[in-house]
Simulated scan of single mutants.
Amino acid sequence: MITLHTWTTPNGRKPVIMMEELGEPYRIAPVDITKGEQFQPAFLQLSPNNKIPALVDDTADGGPLTLFESGAILTYLADKHGKLLASAGPARWQALQWLHWQIGGLGPMLGQLGFFSKQDDALGKQHFREEAVRLLAVLDKQLAASPYLAGGEYTIADIAAYTWTVAAHEKLRAVLGEELDSKSHVQAWLERVGARPAVRKGMAWQVAGA
């Protein structure tokens, strides 16, 4: 059985969507980051960087495997099942480059914009808004050329970028406004990915009582 230690954040939903796409049984062990549970010693044994998500696969080849970092988890699960990431060749690297683009750019910049949008720091807010706008333009340009980030096929790169782009629409509309709505190719992609049953289920996951 695979156990996902996660929470209802954009990064935390990535492996939930992935497990739903794969159809493999799993269980969720909620890590309430609003209560600081990511700093508890038991969780730090799984994720030394005190960030969700973390995965424990008791059925891994060679014995139980523990992984942290959402990109590593998505890549591992894709390779394990032979789905949503080509095993070799250009298609694999196209998907991985966009996965790492999200991990290194889109996610962190939107997260920082979310933080600074609530602070009395005009310079910080301006800086991260400009970078968020630039990244959304990169995303829109790529999706103008292909239906999914890595080309014609839906991959883990789409899962990774989707959760953060949805979060931007839900949480950052006041600071991004027209920059979100004007990206027609992004909007079409959001509808395309969001229509997938596994994505709908993963995005709807909530913690009881939270």
Results as ranks from 00 to 15, higher is better:
Met1Arg: 13
Trp7Cys: 01
Thr9Gln: 12
Gly12Glu: 06
Lys14Asn: 14
Val16Arg: 03
Ile17Phe: 00
Ile17Glu: 05
Glu24Lys: 04
Glu24Ser: 09
Ala29Cys: 12
Lys35Ser: 13
Gly36Trp: 08
Glu37Leu: 03
Gln40Ala: 15
Phe43Asn: 09
Phe43Ser: 06
Leu44Asp: 09
Ser47Gly: 11
Asn49Ser: 15
Asn50Gln: 14
Lys51Asn: 12
Pro53Ile: 04
Pro53Glu: 03
Ala54Lys: 00
Leu55Asn: 00
Val56Gly: 01
Val56Tyr: 12
Asp58His: 09
Ala60Asp: 03
Ala60Val: 08
Asp61Ile: 14
Gly62Lys: 00
Gly63Pro: 11
Gly63Tyr: 13
Leu65Tyr: 05
Thr66Val: 12
Phe68Pro: 06
Ser70Thr: 08
Ser70Gln: 05
Asp79Met: 11
Gly82Trp: 11
Lys83Tyr: 06
Ala86Leu: 02
Gly89Phe: 01
Ala91Val: 07
Arg92Lys: 08
Gln94Lys: 15
Leu96Ser: 06
His100Gly: 00
His100Met: 15
Gly105Met: 10
Met109Asn: 01
Met109Gly: 00
Met109Arg: 12
Gln112Tyr: 07
Gln112His: 10
Leu113Thr: 07
Leu113Tyr: 10
Phe116Cys: 12
Gln126His: 14
His127Ala: 09
His127Val: 14
Glu130Ser: 15
Val133Ile: 15
Val133Asn: 09
Ala137Lys: 11
Gln142Asp: 05
Ala145Val: 05
Pro147Tyr: 02
Ala150His: 08
Thr155Asn: 01
Thr155Met: 03
Thr155Cys: 01
Ala160Trp: 00
Tyr162Pro: 02
Trp164Cys: 09
Thr165Glu: 10
Thr165Pro: 10
Val166Pro: 10
Glu170Ser: 04
Lys171Thr: 15
Lys171Ser: 11
Leu172Lys: 02
Arg173Trp: 11
Gly177Pro: 00
Leu180Phe: 05
Asp181Thr: 15
Asp181His: 08
Ser182Thr: 11
Lys183Arg: 14
Lys183Val: 05
Trp189Pro: 08
Leu190His: 01
Arg192Thr: 04
Val193Trp: 01
Met203Leu: 12
Ala204Gln: 13
Ala208Arg: 13
Ala208Cys: 04
